[in-house]
Amino acid sequence: MEGDIVQMGAYIGAGLACMGMGGAAVGVGNVAGNFLAGALRNPSAAPGQTATLFIGIAFAEALGIFSFLVALLLMFAV
């Protein structure tokens, strides 16, 4: 019984952790959208900034991966 409650808590926590992925989605969308807006205003400067774009996306996405990791840890490792 007690184990069931712990398991339930772990699953609920995993589900809650997955909400963090939404944040990562917003972040990645923000980075990409702003890049596109800037690139449309000044297309000649865009190719030089693609590296920065990917770095930005990677940083934003890493946080979503962290939340996914927390969910996995709660489901499989707790």
Binding site: A58, I65, F66, L69
Partner: peptide, 16 residues
């Protein structure tokens, strides 16, 4: 930390 977890996490998540 983020350097390693980003790569492993992405690979793991996609395959899972």
């Amino acid at each position: 930390l983020s350097h390693s977890i980003r790569l492993a996490g992405n690979m793991m998540a996609g395959h899972a």
